[in-house]
Amino acid sequence: MPKSEEAVQMGLLIDYEFCTNCHTCEVACKKELGLKPGEYGIKVLEDGPRRNPDGKWEWNYVPVPTSLCDLCEKRVAEGRKPTCVHHCQSGIMYYGPVEELAKKMTGKPNMVLYSK
């Protein structure tokens, strides 16, 4: 049975393997939501850099949507993508039904799925 549109849970899929900490999602979101300094709808968190036992460097950035994120309701209603997805410089953010996004992440390491 296909779910009705209202029932479909939407989310963001982020391939953080290639997040470079360019701050684009943070600032695009601020501009879209009209946030003040210190306020974030999405914030990039850092892990590393440090060396792993094999000598390779571990250095990850992960954008985390906050409670202020409304998945760009207004933009989506206009037929656009959320502004972070549209502008992400690495092109690693995807918007869609969480079930579809979950399929997309199958087999690809270093992805995170956020539900709303």
Partner: peptide
Amino acid sequence: EGDPNASFNRGRLCLRCI
């Protein structure tokens, strides 16, 4: 907004334009 039809940046933008 970044122009997705521009093949140079394909919709992406950095902070300066955003």
